[in-house]
Amino acid sequence: MSSHALPGTGRRRFVTIGFRVGTYLSLLMIMGPVVWLLAGIVVRAVPHFSWSVLTHPTTGESGGLENAIIGTLLLMAGVLVLAGGIGILAGLHLAEYAKPRKNGKESGSLLRIASDVLSGFPSIVLGYVGYVALVLGLHWNFSLLAAWIILSVMVIPYIAKSTETALRQVPTAYREGAEALGMPPGYALRKVTLKTAAPGIVTGLLLALAIAGGETAPLIYTAGAFADSPVSMSLTHHPVPYLTFLVYGFYTLPENASHYLAYDAGLVLVVLVLVLLVAARLVVNRTQKHSEARRG
């Protein structure tokens, strides 16, 4: 290159640096709170942590977390089945079957709008709907089933959206290749399309589970707000204990023992979500051994 400065070089350099600084700042905005929150929980929970917390149920305003951990796991398992099933099927419908009609109009838009509107409802509103319709209306009382349904309604739009997006990102070349080989559509969907979209679908499902596990407001109205209730496998008429209520409810109690328990509950939740993340990554990696993205 010649030694002459190109016109606008100074301005370009300024813009480049500006953008670079901007991206680092946004990175900081995301990383900062995560580190701060994690550190806050670990620092407050670990010094008082004893393993017996995991094996003893909550009694009164202290004790352990056994019943709350099992309750939270139960809630998440139900959401995985109920919301996972419906959400993935809805996403599949939007991406694969609600194709533009012959007249060129987009079909499935009603489902898409309904799903988007549903995802915009505040969770406390959903919780209250569950309280009025299920807990009182159907006389289920505070119960596992009411909590499952309301949590599922909350995260289904999320799962449907992430599933649809993942499926739409499957390269047309794969679909056409399968089509041109004369693969039956269902077979091609299972062996080629879904397999390729699996990481996106699993990630969406996982985030939805994490959201469900971290919810408090809708659960207070549907699962109940009793930290020391025993875990019951009956679907109705028994309140469910869960970790987030301990975080929310025990932090404001006067005793130190209650505060410790609240921090322990927070720590257990964080570890739970981390375990979920790692497990899902491992599963996804196994299925993506032959993916195009991993050609290296």
Binding site: P171, Y174, E176, G177, K191, K195, T196, H290, S291
Partner: peptide, 10 residues
């Protein structure tokens, strides 16, 4: 096809 389009399998 114009571009090679192997499936993401072995």
């Amino acid at each position: 096809f114009q571009r090679p389009n192997p499936f993401p399998m072995s």
